[in-house]
Design a protein around this nucleic acid. Structure first.
Lengths: 200, 200
DNA sequence: TGCGTTTGATTACGCTGTAAACATAGAGGC
DNA sequence: GCCTCTATGTTTACAGCGTAATCAAACGCA
């Protein structure tokens, strides 16, 4: 045969990457509940068992998707942090964190609550290879801002908890705002907190 | 026949309540992923289709479980709030919120992230009939504490986001502490925030 | 006593994740 | 150019899931 048509090649060539991309697409289209391994395989034009050559099980594929999400989030936080200075940079990071969650809700949920839930142990962290590790970006900014009222570590955790909780509550419709209102709300809350934290 | 043995009665008598209780037990034992409607029915000694006489579908049963959880949470917050005054009462509520999440992780996740996820629309709220509505307890305390730096509404949302995010991050093992450390951490973080909020 | 309504049981369908066994394509050595 | 090895697919099969459709029993009221 030796047809060069990549559509019909027995070996896909880049199945692993294609699976992650297809899973991400299905995830953002229908949430984690509406994501089946078989459907992902189908979307890649491959049999239901093929993914098992690249991932131990469904959760492993989801973990790979989550890891890509963490890399993305790190990039966004780094950009936001670089856009301002001092307490404003902290507020910008917070707004970017919430904006990420709002823009990609299913991915955000997968990253933090997904893959078996209940701290199943197999959680992704992001590669953190290029210095855009989300946690480090936040903690460095907080270290620069911490005053006598609270340690740098506690300030980091407080800030992270605040934006993470705000994002989660908005996503779960616990606080009722539309998309535009949510961004404004996130900016107001994070700015208010940054002012408090900076001792203003 | 007319046997009076309730074990073998054709009609269960209290199937709805029994289903909620069994679902809660299965949920706390194996998380939402490990909870099947058929298993819940089996635990109640009833056929797989029997639950559909009491709940539209699996999500409706989960919503009933979540509602019970919200009532429980409201009770705990009310008790915590009553145990102290001023900023200390706010910190106590926060610690109680995190303690609830740590004590019943699967229920907490179900309440806030469950039943279809991604804001599927069918979220439970708790009955709020006996004045123990969780949100109201928090907002009243915050209204009493709000200063010129931040409105009562924003303070309420900030406080809720903080404890909710902290609970979520601990449950997802994003911050590594053991159970005892988590309680202490929650108390330190909430106390620090309450002091900031009170203008200290 | 008998009938209607409620509540349960049975059966069946398509979907899921995944274990086991088999097939094919490309790479390296002769 | 051919042979073999290994990586990567395919096929088949199974148990479990949620739930639609249909049938059966028991309770409540006339």
């Amino acid at each position: 045969m030796s047809t060069s048509d990549p559509e019909r090649a027995y070996h896909h060539g880049e199945l692993r990457g294609a699976l992650v991309a297809a899973a991400l697409a299905d995830l953002e289209a229908g949430g984690e509940a509406g994501l089946s391994l078989r459907a992902v395989a189908r979307a890649c034009g491959v049999s239901a068992m093929a993914p098992y050559r690249h991932f131990a099980d469904k959760d492993a594929l989801l973990a790979a998707v989550a890891e890509r999400g963490f890399d993305d989030l790190g990039d966004r936080l780094a950009a936001a942090d670089a856009s301002a200075e001092g307490a404003s940079a902290l507020a910008a990071q917070g707004a970017a964190y919430v904006a990420f969650a709002l823009a990609r809700p299913a991915l955000f949920r997968l990253m933090f609550m997904g893959a078996g839930g209940l701290g199943a142990g197999g959680r992704a962290e992001g590669s953190c290879a290029d210095g855009s590790c989300a946690y480090r970006i936040l903690s460095e900014r907080c270290a620069a801002l911490a005053g006598p009222a609270m340690s740098a570590e506690d300030l980091t955790l407080t800030a992270w908890s605040l934006v993470h909780g705000l994002a989660a509550l908005i996503l779960d419709r616990r606080v009722s705002v539309d998309a535009a209102g949510a961004e404004a709300l996130a900016r107001r809350i994070t700015t208010g907190f940054a002012r408090l934290a900076a001792g203003g």
